[in-house]
C-alpha cells in the first residue's frame, strides 16, 4: 500500500483513538518506524484531533475542581494512614528508596497559633506599658517624698534645741 493510501485509510485515526486491535496497532507502529512521513502525519493528526475534541469541550461545574483537589490530596496522604500495617525492618537501602515513612523533618521555622492570640498579645503589651508608666510615676513620687521627709526631719532637728533653751 502506498503511503498516501495508508494515510487516508483511516487506520491512523483509529490507532490514535485506541480503536484498533493489537495486530493493527503493531502494524501501525511498524509503519511509523519504517516510514518517517507516516510518523509526521501522525503528529499532525494528534494536533488536529486535539483541536477537534477541544471544540466539543463542556465546562464542568466549578465544585468538581475542589472535589478533585480534595481526593488528590487524600491520595497523597493515604500511604501514611496505616503505619502499623508494615513492620519496620532495618535495611541497608538508601533513605530515598524507602517509601511509606513520614518525613518529619520540618524546614519551616514559623509556628501557627489561634487567631485569638493576636488581641491577647496586644492587650498584654498595652497593659505592660501602662504598668511601666505607673511604676515610674510612683517611683519618682516616692523619691520626692523621701527627699521631702529628709528635709523636714533636718528642719525639726535644727529647731528643737532652740525651743529647749531658757
Amino acid at each position: 500500500m502506498k503511503t498516501e493510501d495508508y494515510i487516508s485509510s483511516g487506520l491512523l485515526e483509529a490507532y490514535v483513538l485506541g480503536l484498533v486491535s493489537d495486530q493493527d496497532k503493531r502494524e501501525v507502529e511498524h509503519m511509523v518506524a519504517t516510514h518517517p512521513e507516516i510518523g509526521l502525519y501522525l503528529d499532525k493528526l494528534e494536533v488536529k484531533l486535539e483541536s477537534q475534541f477541544l471544540q466539543g469541550a463542556v465546562p464542568p461545574p466549578p465544585a468538581l475542581r475542589e472535589r478533585i483537589e480534595l481526593r488528590a490530596t487524600q491520595q497523597e496522604v493515604k500511604p501514611y494512614e496505616a503505619p502499623y500495617q508494615h513492620q519496620y525492618q532495618p535495611t541497608d537501602e538508601p533513605a530515598a528508596d524507602r517509601s511509606g515513612y513520614v518525613d518529619v523533618q520540618v524546614s519551616n521555622t514559623h509556628i501557627q497559633v489561634h487567631k485569638y492570640w493576636r488581641p491577647a498579645f496586644i492587650a498584654v503589651f498595652i497593659l505592660s506599658k501602662i504598668f511601666l508608666v505607673f511604676g515610674l510615676y510612683y517611683y519618682f513620687k516616692a523619691q520626692t517624698q523621701e527627699q521631702e521627709i529628709n528635709r523636714l526631719t533636718k528642719q525639726v532637728h535644727q529647731t528643737a534645741p532652740r525651743a529647749g533653751t531658757p
Partner: peptide, 24 residues
Amino acid sequence: IAKPAEQLALYDRYGSMAYGIILQ
C-alpha cells in the same frame, strides 16, 4: 507520581475537553 498541583494543572487544561467526551 503526580502531585495534587500537577493533577489540577491537567484538569484546568483538559477538564472541559474530557467532560465533553464523557458526556458524549
